[in-house]
């Protein structure tokens, strides 16, 4: 199945070469969980702290059980605490 993977800030380096701006359509296996997709692209789970599936935050405790569907959009942002 195809999903749109969006990576922001320092995570952008994980996007494939065909990415435009911060997003790329990527092919992943069906029934993959959020964490399986993050691991598939060799992204550090801690670094991708804010995980957003179709615009909604996915709590860390739900990232193993949340299964992606065809045409979903998964966006990843790092943690920010400075001020």
């Amino acid at each position: 199945m195809n999903i749109t993977l969006k990576c922001f800030a320092g995570l952008k380096r994980h996007l494939p070469p065909h990415a435009k701006a911060n997003a790329a359509i990527v092919e992943v296996d069906a029934e993959m969980s959020v964490y399986q997709v993050i691991d598939f692209f060799k992204i550090d789970r801690e670094e991708a702290y804010l995980v957003i599936l179709n615009g909604v935050f996915v709590c860390p405790t739900e990232r193993n059980s949340t299964i992606l569907k065809d045409n979903d959009t998964l966006a990843l942002w790092p943690e920010v605490a400075g001020g």
Partner: peptide, 22 residues
Amino acid sequence: RVLLFDALSMQWETMQLPKNPD
């Protein structure tokens, strides 16, 4: 909602933040 800003790519994202019942 959480508004997220990436100045380098000049992109904004809006994230819906549900309450965590736990």
